[in-house]
């Protein structure tokens, strides 16, 4: 449970910068703000749907900055040819949500 988050600090900084650039409201990004960013990856929509399922950990239809980092991490991994897991591996769960 105390394993280090797989999102490295330098990656987190990059993802946080993207997060802020999208105009979060109350520290959250709605699905309609995140969707075009993920679509921009040109990954299949069913893959992106799974990325969303895994990253919206509290299933409120919004991503906070940690959830957004999970989404971006999975998208970058998928672009490198790695498969998106069916469920979120514990090391990918943000420490704030364990």
């Amino acid at each position: 449970a105390d394993a280090p988050w797989v999102v490295k600090p330098e990656e987190k900084m990059k993802f946080d910068t993207i997060f802020e650039s999208l105009g979060p409201v109350g520290g959250m990004l709605s699905g309609d703000k995140v969707k075009p960013v993920l679509l921009n990856s040109n990954l299949p929509v069913d893959i992106l749907g799974r990325v969303w399922e895994l990253s919206d950990i509290d299933r409120d239809g919004m991503l906070d900055r940690d959830e957004f980092s999970v989404a971006m991490f999975l998208v970058y991994r998928a672009l490198e040819g790695e498969s998106v897991p069916m469920s979120l591996p514990p090391p990918l769960v943000p420490p704030s949500k364990r």
Binding site: V34, K35, L38, V45, L48, G49, W52, D56, R59, G61
Partner: peptide, 13 residues
């Protein structure tokens, strides 16, 4: 339409 057990909060469904 959402799959059984799916989330209506998913913007990709």
């Amino acid at each position: 339409q959402y799959p059984a057990g799916g989330s209506s909060t998913n913007p990709f469904l």
